[in-house]
């Protein structure tokens, strides 16, 4: 009987600690990020493993309808133009529930990508299974991954730069600094930053 009680307590401890450590936390620096197969605006499915020659990825959770995401659209495109050819393509993922935000549905994503001339894949997190694993809470929210033998290692989490309002007034380009460091096999100078954004709609 005593053993049973102890066992019950132990089960409770494990359950509780499991909830407190994993609930809503998502990835930390150094974690291996999951791959996915998500539909792109051209109707094709895209996975990180499709990019045989990539050295890493700039994964950005973003959308059409958030003003902060809109403020960063041109800068996201510029990141892809600069870094895709260097082995670090931008992979944009739209995480919102499109029943709540119809302005983020596939048709709207296609229209926005066409209007802005996006050259990066703009994927729909259909079923909203991927963003919780990464721990994304808002748009835009960046995860920089480095491809290794173990998998895609998370090297940076946070903001694109330090001025959402005015790209000409930016002092620190967190994402560029991180990718530049990875390219040179150096430590990423700032690994985590906070960014203001719109909560992901569930």
């Amino acid at each position: 009987m005593k053993t049973l009680r102890i066992l019950a307590v132990m089960v409770l401890v494990v359950t509780l600690s499991a909830f407190t450590t994993t609930d809503g936390d998502g990835y930390k620096i150094g974690d291996i990020a999951t791959d996915f197969s998500l539909e792109n605006i051209d109707g094709k499915m895209v996975s990180l493993s499709d990019y045989k020659d990539a050295k890493g990825f700039i994964v950005i959770f973003t959308c059409n309808t958030c003003p902060y995401a809109v403020a960063y659209e041109d800068r996201i495109e510029a990141l892809n133009k600069k870094y895709a050819s260097q082995g670090y393509p931008v992979i944009a993922i739209m995480p919102n529930n499109t029943d709540v935000k119809p302005g983020d549905n596939m048709e709207a994503m296609k229209a926005r990508a066409k209007a802005k001339g996006f050259t990066f894949p703009y994927l729909m997190d259909k079923g909203q299974k991927i963003y919780p694993q990464y721990g994304a809470t808002k748009t835009p929210h960046v995860y920089i991954l480095e491809k290794t033998k173990k998998g895609n290692v998370v090297k940076y989490i946070g903001a694109i730069d330090d001025n959402y309002k005015d790209s000409s007034a930016v002092n620190t380009k967190y994402v560029e600094d991180a990718v530049d460091a990875l390219k040179k096999n150096k430590e990423v100078p700032v690994k985590e930053t906070r960014a203001i954004g719109c909560s992901i709609k569930v």
Partner: peptide, 13 residues
């Protein structure tokens, strides 16, 4: 953001 609260990831509201 962290000055307002250490646990705030930055999402509104």
């Amino acid at each position: 953001i962290p000055a307002i609260n250490e646990n705030w990831t930055g999402a509104l509201p």
